[in-house]
Design a protein around this nucleic acid. Structure first.
Lengths: 193, 193
DNA sequence: TTCGTTAAGTACCGATCGGTTCAGAACTGT
DNA sequence: ACAGTTCTGAACCGATCGGTACTTAACGAA
């Protein structure tokens, strides 16, 4: 009942996500966000709550879409395959042909003013969660004999995450997928077993 | 001649640098900057020009101070020693006991709005320059027989830079020096020769 | 057709943004 | 003592920040 919504919330959220991706949380103003979404501020507030909640939903969409590689990689059969798929996925997502370079969760709010601490903390948790899931996967790999008994799953997970973050910065710096793939090859030279 | 300046510009610049470090370029407001510097906006404009030029000078100070490890590392005798010193220096600088975590050049303006493109581009150049200097050092190492003939200096330099950026993000994420040093060890396992 | 409900557009809110104007205070050279 | 110069503090600038109040438009149910 009532007047039906005049825009596609999914499409609007997708466009908001891209603005946050390119500009970061602070750098994305409501004016630019709503302009890209094709709606007015009033409609945005009615549909998404406020800027922070819009960012929260954009981040969820990012995790389910562009950053889904992080979850898919965990399903690879071996630890090496997981690490490779994770980093290749990072390269692919941070250097899209159409969208912004880099990673939303890294560019979003690495540093920020106090008032935006909420968005900052949200991203810290997001990144740490990704590391924990990787660590658990590597721990399983040790149990399965897929990694050496003396391998340290946490350490390996942190190393891979560090490479992922570094790749995001390099992508924002202008490096392309070919160059980043070379970096991934170099990084995996010392991979155990 | 004229009234002497009532504050120490070096000290004021140091404090401004730390604010930029913690908040990023956009996140650092003039109010917070001048408050930390202990001077008024008028004095800041008279002494440094404007926010962008203040950032430029803070970045120079950062390069000569906290980030001097990047230059010092180049003087190590072997490529491996250079890589090790570079990454250990990155760990040390991004996890200070007193100051902000992370790297000013990474947190400063990875993503930003259009109006701050100048600061953004400044940091992109800064980061790329660091990579180029590392590459030249590794090229020399190949010439000197310190690295294998078939080693790719550019690729190795990009790998080390990627690790450095990743370390900066991990430091901002809350990891301490001990954990980051472990990551450095892991990263260097595949180092040639 | 009318009513209740919800969406959309405009105009606006106080606060803060980076930046400036201006009067006067503080100093040096004469 | 005075002139010339430079620095400081407060008050202020238009613009933009995130966020709202209010009116009008568009729908479904009765």
């Amino acid at each position: 009942m009532g007047r039906p919504r005049g825009f596609d919330t999914d499409q609007a959220l997708e466009r908001a996500m891209r603005v946050f991706w390119a500009r970061g949380y602070e750098g994305a103003s409501l004016a630019e966000l709503t302009s890209a979404m094709g709606i007015t501020k009033t409609s945005m507030y009615a549909a998404f709550g406020n800027k922070e909640q819009l960012f929260r939903k954009a981040l969820q969409r990012y995790g389910a879409g562009p950053a889904a590689y992080a979850t898919r990689a965990l399903e690879e059969p071996t630890a090496r395959a997981v690490a490779t798929a994770f980093l290749r996925g990072a390269v692919c997502t941070t250097t899209p042909a159409d969208g912004p370079s880099g990673c939303l969760t890294v560019q979003g709010a690495l540093a920020s003013s106090d008032e935006n601490r909420a968005a900052h903390d949200l991203l810290v948790d997001w990144r740490n969660d990704a590391g924990v899931r990787l660590e658990e996967r590597f721990r399983r790999a040790v149990d399965e004999g897929d990694l050496p008994r003396d391998a340290d799953p946490r350490r390996l997970a942190r190393f891979i995450m560090t490479m992922g973050f570094g790749i995001a910065v390099q992508a924002a710096n202008g490096l392309g997928p070919a160059e980043l793939d070379e970096i991934v090859d170099t990084a995996l030279l010392g991979w155990p077993a």
